[in-house]
Design a protein around this nucleic acid. Structure first.
Lengths: 139, 139
DNA sequence: TATTGTTATACTCTATAACTATA
DNA sequence: TATAGTTATAGAGTATAACAATA
């Protein structure tokens, strides 16, 4: 099967590569019960304690009604605490609970290892080049 | 918002970049009424005339029941012809119709231009490096 | 017995409209 | 008037089970 033309398109390559990495992610992260989007949200909360739902939505390009569902789930799993925002009465400040922190400490390590496994065909130098070029596209 | 950790993960970067390119794709390809997956299937048929549904499924990692819907749509739009396969009585050989060929000739040109626009922050040399590294991940 | 194509359907993900409470 | 959060729901995308026809 000749896929030379599709392989000349960066969009095609980026999508196929991201799906391959995510497939590995699902395998390696199964024990955490975290989808990629769950992981991204919790990681941002971890590294930005007190952040709001809106800020997460903007950072991850997620629509607010969908974020509500994710956060509700995290609260039910006692991974995230919601406290009144100090300056904005409409918003809620988000932080990881103690068990959320413990989970994410392990999950971030596993996610890093999973990413290395999925990109084992690359050298560390190539990984850094790749990350830099991809960020030039979407940032 | 500190997203440094997520940005260290290739899976996150690849997904964000692919979404950015696909967003541009939707804008530029609107007049063709082709989603990325439609475009990929039709392009493979164009460059591999006589190919079968199963071969397309394997090449694009699409499940057969979903491919049936795509091909049925293409047939209704008179973009694809299906003829009995010369050697396998179970399969159908797929080719573009004359109007399908005309559409895809224009669509492939537009898709290339769209990809260049979405990656205008990169040099041509960087684009080639990026494509090569991404293919090392998923091929 | 395995594979191609197919139907029907379930499940997940993403998007839209409309509402409330506060800025 | 605009924004944060929420509810309900619609739409798009992806996956599973089961079947007929052919290899």
């Amino acid at each position: 099967m000749d896929a030379a033309f599709l392989q000349s398109l960066l969009g095609y390559n980026a999508r196929r590569a991201s799906l391959a990495i995510i497939e590995q992610f699902h395998v390696d992260m199964a024990s955490f019960d975290l989808r990629p989007v769950d992981f991204s949200v919790l990681s941002l909360i971890r590294h930005n304690p007190g952040t709001t739902s809106r800020q997460l939505c903007q950072a991850l390009n997620i629509l607010p009604p969908n974020m509500v569902v994710f956060l509700k789930n995290f609260e039910k799993r006692q991974l995230v605490d919601r406290a009144p925002h100090p300056t904005d009465g409409r918003a809620m400040g988000l932080t990881l609970t103690q068990s959320g922190e413990a989970l994410m400490q392990a999950a971030e390590k596993t996610a890093m290892d999973s990413g290395l496994k999925a990109t084992s065909a690359l050298t560390e130098s190539e990984r850094q080049t790749l990350a830099r070029l991809l960020q030039k596209i979407y940032l």
